[in-house]
Amino acid sequence: MESQNLVKVVDFAPFLDGSDKQSVGDALLESFKTTGFVYLVNHGLSQDKIDQMFDLSKKFFALSHEQKMLAPHPPSGTHHRGYSAPGVEKVVQHVYDRSDIAEARKRSDVKETFEAGREDDELMPNIWFPEKVLPGFREGCLQFFWDCFEIEKNILRALAIGFELPEEYFLHFHTKPDNQLRLSRYPSVPTSVLLNGELSRIDAHSDFGSMTLLMQDDIGGLEVQDPHSGEFCPVRSIPGSILLNAGDFLMRWSNDTIKSTIHRVRAPPSIETDTVPDRYSIPYVSFSDMETVVDCIPGTWNTEKPKKYEPISVGGYVMRRLAASY
Rank of each mutant, 00 (worst) to 15 (best):
Q4F: 05
L6E: 04
V9E: 06
F15T: 10
G18T: 01
G18N: 01
S23A: 13
S23W: 01
S23F: 03
G25K: 06
D26N: 14
D26G: 01
E30Y: 09
S31K: 01
V41I: 15
N42Q: 09
Q47M: 06
K49A: 13
Q52V: 01
K58R: 13
S64T: 14
S64L: 03
P74E: 07
P75V: 10
P75Q: 11
S76C: 03
T78S: 14
R81S: 04
R81M: 03
G82M: 02
S84L: 10
S84E: 10
G87M: 11
E89S: 09
V92M: 02
Q93T: 15
H94C: 09
D97G: 05
D100A: 08
I101C: 07
I101D: 09
I101G: 03
A104T: 13
R107M: 11
E115A: 02
G117S: 14
E122V: 15
I127H: 04
W128T: 08
W128Y: 13
G140E: 01
F145C: 01
D147Y: 12
C148M: 14
K153Q: 15
K153P: 04
I155G: 05
R157S: 11
I161P: 08
Y169W: 14
F170H: 12
H172P: 00
F173R: 13
T175M: 15
D178V: 04
N179L: 04
L181C: 05
L181E: 07
Y186G: 11
Y186D: 10
P190W: 02
P190L: 01
S200M: 06
R201D: 08
D203G: 15
A204C: 09
S210Q: 04
L213E: 08
L214V: 11
M215F: 14
D217N: 09
D217Q: 05
G221P: 07
G221V: 09
P227K: 12
H228N: 14
G230K: 05
P234T: 07
S237P: 02
I238M: 14
L243M: 12
L244M: 13
L244W: 06
N245Q: 03
G247N: 01
F249N: 00
M251C: 05
T257M: 15
I262V: 15
V265R: 05
R266C: 14
A267T: 12
S270I: 00
D274M: 03
T275K: 07
V276D: 05
V276R: 04
D278K: 04
Y280F: 14
S281R: 00
I282C: 09
Y284T: 05
S286K: 00
F287L: 05
M290I: 10
E291I: 08
D295L: 06
C296P: 03
P298S: 01
G299C: 06
T300E: 03
E304A: 07
P311E: 06
I312P: 00
G315E: 07
M319C: 09
R320V: 11
R321S: 10
L322G: 02
A323M: 12
S325P: 00
Y326C: 08
Y326M: 08
